[in-house]
Design a protein around this nucleic acid. Structure first.
Lengths: 166, 166
DNA sequence: TTGTATGCAAATAATTTGCACCAAA
DNA sequence: TTTGGTGCAAATTATTTGCATACAA
């Protein structure tokens, strides 16, 4: 899930940490070391990831700042609730990406190298809203994924085909 | 997964059954009673469904024409390979829909009644191809789902709010 | 006859949950 | 001190797989 091209972040008044604090306070929830640690771990990488990949780069059981996977799963869902992350399904796994302080976008998904490439399209949004309006549908969001083969992988395939001919 | 609005079918030269026979023959696979039975069961309903829903309306163990769930799962994948069905992920489950003899389309997904409403949009396709071209991406397909609340559920919510005020 | 297909039950994989203990507020 | 949070292990859910047997070609 690495190698994804990224857009420029937006300027936001609160840091993700502050924003999450706010979220917790308004609901009478608590600030714990695990939550503080996880929010840093998640926001220091501007990339797509799933729970497993995140757990992999976190301290192991017995090490300092270890967080159990149950808590990782629980906290990821809270981050989504809080509007810090977005999640979607890809090949059966739940993939997370930054949402807070990050512009709305959709993805191209390369089925060869499995990377996600982000793109923004006003036309897509316009089409979405028009289609919904025609059906009397009240839109809350959407998910568009274009599958195919990215530029690099196409190049490599061409090269490979040439080699195969030799 | 019922209650979905449907588009008109296309005219195709081969029936799904014939088309699947062809698929099996070109690969040296076999025509079994289970496969014949399942293709009928699947194509008699023009709707979205998941493996579980299909199994539910099939004969039970011990009854005539019983098909084990392992075979149902295996066969659904074959139908997708054969181009008879399409599949996608929704709320974690794999959802299937007719593909053969059915026009390309995308979906509005009502998060209240969980129904899928189909729509066709040439603009969406144009946007997709243009975005991909800009990134040098070779498109093989896409998946667009617009989430929100459908007309009927919106009405009901309004009605419910009024009642709540009384 | 020969390998493919099926049914069954066990195995997976990714999450979720129950519960006793821990710790913010 | 009171409730929410965490870790652990067991439970879930949807699906896949191993294997012995059944059957299409």
């Amino acid at each position: 899930m690495s190698n994804s091209e990224s857009l420029e972040p937006l300027r936001v008044s609160l840091s993700p940490q502050e924003r999450f604090e706010e979220y917790l306070q308004t609901r009478g929830l608590r600030q714990t070391n695990q939550r503080k640690f996880l929010i840093e771990a998640v926001f220091e990488e501007h990339d797509h990831f799933d729970a497993d990949e995140l757990i992999d780069r976190l301290p192991r059981r017995g090490e300092e700042n270890y967080v159990s996977s149950a808590t990782v799963y629980r906290t990821l869902r809270e981050f989504v609730d809080a509007g810090l992350l977005k999640s979607f399904q890809l090949d059966g796994r739940t993939v997370y990406e930054l949402d807070y302080g990050y512009p709305q976008h959709d993805h191209l998904y390369c089925t060869v190298c499995r990377s996600l490439i982000e793109f923004q399209s006003d036309e897509l949004m316009a089409t979405r809203d028009q289609v919904a309006a025609e059906k009397g549908f009240r839109v809350s969001g959407h998910r568009m994924i274009i599958q195919g083969i990215c530029k690099d992988c196409s190049k490599m395939r061409r090269k490979k085909r040439k080699q195969d001919l030799v």
